[in-house]
Nucleic acid binder design. Structure first.
Length: 108
DNA sequence: CGTTTGACGGTCC
DNA sequence: CGGACCGCCAAAC
């Protein structure tokens, strides 16, 4: 049973360190998916997959909480990030590059 | 089975 | 700096 591409997305997302975030594109590039859209789609499925995936640590390349609308509540994503010490303002992560976690470089 | 959509990204204007 | 457009690939319709 080979892992499907979205199962790999779950693994990478689960490995994102506390207080750090990554982008759809970074994951897509790390997994060589070729399409960042697939990451978002995979994470979307994660809700019904039963897996505990910290999808709130994944944002778009601008650091915007573009996926907040897919959470149980639109404010949950921002609150979770704030709890982890990530500065979020107007649905945008502040000092994004400082909390950005690149799997291609920091993940072995 | 052809068309539309989507938690994106990069380029172009 | 921001809006418009195209490309990515899989799933839903």
């Amino acid at each position: 049973m080979e892992k499907t591409y979205y199962e790999r997305v779950y693994e990478v997302t689960q490995q994102v360190p506390y207080g750090r975030v990554t982008t759809y594109g970074a994951i897509a590039d790390y997994l060589t998916l070729g399409a960042a859209r697939m990451v978002g789609w995979a994470l979307n499925k994660s809700f019904s997959s039963g897996e505990d995936v910290p999808a709130h640590r994944v944002v778009n390349r601008k650091g915007e909480l573009s996926g907040r609308h897919h959470f149980p509540t639109p404010t949950l994503m921002e609150e979770l990030l704030l709890q982890e010490g990530v500065r979020v303002e107007d649905n945008v992560i502040q000092d994004f590059k400082s909390v950005f976690w690149n799997p291609s470089e920091e993940l072995v």
